[in-house]
Design a protein around this nucleic acid. Structure first.
Length: 566
DNA sequence: CGGTTTTGACCCGCGC
DNA sequence: GCGCGGGTCAAAACCG
């Protein structure tokens, strides 16, 4: 498609003086509706539409040429003004987009085009018709202008939000670099956060962390992390007893060895080289090892997070009589995300779900929230741990930032083999709703919402529906859950989210979440069918997904190891 | 029949 | 070196 480039409008004139926009123009941006939905090419398309649309509707007799030419010029200039068109000289010649009007055009092009029906029109009839057409044009032009105005406002808003987010990211990256050199004290961090938020930076730096996060960026993860996590040294044989039998179509990742190979503290591991020769970031390996643990009350064997999981193992840990189940994401082949599900030893109504890794595939909307949140929490954890060893070694570092509102909401475990954030959603926080938007909470403009990708501008990444269908199904509600009605859970979730988002380090993570949400939404619009087909059993929608799991799990619930006979 | 779950065995890191 | 514990594999069973 010619995006309003050097292709001239190329108005042609028939012998009657009527001129048409040739169909070749229309394919580029003839339909107004097409323009409205355009994004980055909005201005370009509008600029060409301003002319083409106008001229497309215009069919004027020769006698009116002079009169209408002035009108047209005014109208076009108005449109251009309204749209505040900025036509880069490099790609658009202004004169190409200007409506060629007047008799000079007539003389220039006269006789070049074949006669049309308009030839038969008498001047008088032509005149009247032209007037009505002009009136129609003007009214339509007005509505178009109005719509374009709205669209432009939307674009501007989205751009503003995007810029604000980007600036903040840049500021945070700079701040992070500074803190690497001179680890500031806590209050200094807070001050700098405030300053960073207000900083205005013109530079466009995209932090790598931002790029690394989110499904879009993760799409190539298999080629990276798979070399890191799955790639056994070329000559090393599978030391396991059996050859691969399952997953024949997939290069079976050796998660055991990968896990071990990726130990961040492995002393002898030199940074691996990607095929391209780029040194692989150890951060990525650590990133995959960061864990987000979610504690939620649920009678269900598994909380509903919108993803498809396949159980690949079960183990009874020493400290907990309840067996721990191991699940792997099956929404895409080779997705590195795993989760562990285990009931709390103290309170078996509490389900502890620990997520690890980031999805390398688009997510359905229902899965987006949890994935974004876990990814964000992991990123936050890692950004804290990355910026200084203190973050990793001192469990209070992140705890301080995450727990300004509730000490029971989130905890950081440094004693665990891997850095782990635990979001405790089992405790109802009375003031959770008030904490949802604390005055000092960093709020990221939500480009998705601004641009209309997401309907409600929710600060919370965790819609309540992800925490088990039981929350909405009274029949499945246990006494535990009835003690925690959905609304309060919503508050708790919101409060947890508020606690997380209060951390400025969360920014990069949230950016990832946003990008994944946007990308996922973009995907989701066209992905549903794909999800259905590829996930055959699971998903006409999420409820079906739940039912699939629940039916099985319910059937086996009595014998479910998640509920061992006490 | 294909996908999922179960379950015993294996691997590896770590502590002693 | 050995045992323990966590994590994973994969054949068999199960399910729709």
């Amino acid at each position: 498609m010619d995006k309003g480039g050097t292709t001239g409008v190329g108005l042609t004139l028939n012998t009657s003086g009527s001129f048409f926009v040739p169909s070749t123009l229309d394919h580029g941006g003839g339909g107004l509706g097409r323009h409205r939905s355009m994004g980055s090419d909005f201005n370009h398309l509008c600029s060409s539409s301003g002319g083409s649309e106008f001229t497309d509707m215009t069919r004027v007799g020769v006698s009116e040429m002079d009169f209408f030419s002035e009108e047209r010029k005014k109208a076009v200039s108005k449109v251009e003004h309204d749209l505040d068109l900025k036509l880069p000289s490099s790609c658009v010649k202004k004169e190409d987009l200007t409506i060629h009007t007047g008799l000079n055009l007539l003389t220039a092009n006269a006789g070049k085009d074949e006669p049309t029906v308009d030839n038969k029109l008498s001047p008088t009839k032509d005149h009247k018709e032209s007037k009505t057409e002009l009136a129609a044009m003007e009214s339509e032009l007005a509505s178009v202008k109005e719509e374009n105005q709205k669209l432009q406002e939307m674009v501007e808003q989205a751009t503003t939000n995007y810029n604000a987010l980007q600036k903040h990211l840049v500021a945070l990256m700079q701040q992070q670099q500074q803190s690497n050199r001179h680890p500031p004290r806590d209050h200094e961090v807070a001050d700098e956060n405030v300053k960073a938020t207000n900083l205005e930076h013109g530079g466009v730096l995209v932090p790598r962390q931002f790029l690394d996060l989110g499904p879009a960026a993760e799409a190539d993860e298999p080629s990276h992390s798979s070399t890191a996590s799955q790639g056994r040294p070329p000559g090393s044989t599978d030391h396991r007893r059996h050859g691969s039998s399952n997953n024949k179509e997939i290069a079976p990742p050796d998660y055991g060895s990968s896990c071990r190979e990726e130990k961040p503290d492995h002393p002898n591991k030199a940074p691996k080289l990607t095929p391209s020769g780029v040194t692989e970031q150890p951060q990525e390996a650590i990133m995959r090892k960061a864990r987000v643990s979610v504690r939620a009350r649920s009678e269900e064997p598994m909380i509903t997070d919108g993803c498809q999981w396949r159980k690949y193992g079960q183990k009874i840990a020493k400290a907990n009589p309840c067996p721990r189940a191991y699940y792997r994401c099956t929404m895409a082949s080779g997705c590195p995300v795993r989760k562990q599900v285990q009931r709390c030893a103290d309170d078996r109504s509490i389900l502890i779900t620990t997520y690890e890794g980031t999805h390398n595939h688009p997510l359905p909307p229902a899965a987006m929230a949890m994935a974004s949140t876990t990814s964000a929490a992991a990123s936050m954890l890692l950004s804290g741990s990355m910026s200084s060893p203190e973050g990793l070694m001192n469990p209070n570092f992140l705890a301080r930032t995450m727990l300004p509102y509730s000490s029971s909401m989130a905890t950081i475990s440094a004693s665990a083999p891997f850095p782990t954030v635990t979001l405790d959603l089992t405790t109802h926080t009375p003031n959770a709703a008030q904490l949802q938007r604390p005055p000092t909470q960093f709020q990221v403009p939500f480009p998705g919402a601004a641009a209309g990708f997401l309907a409600p501008p929710q600060p919370a990444c965790l819609p309540p529906q992800i925490f088990g269908q039981a929350l909405y199904d009274p029949s499945k509600f246990s006494s535990h859950q009835s003690a925690l009605p959905p609304s309060s859970l919503t508050d708790t979730v919101s409060a947890a989210t508020a606690a997380i988002t209060a951390d400025p380090n969360f920014t990069a993570a949230l950016a990832a979440a946003i990008s994944s949400i946007i990308g996922g939404n973009h995907q989701a619009a066209s992905h549903n069918d794909g999800t259905k087909s590829s996930a055959n059993k699971t998903t006409s929608d999420d409820n079906d997904d739940d039912k699939t799991y629940n039916s099985k799990d319910d059937a086996s619930n009595s014998a479910s190891p998640n509920f061992p006979a006490a």
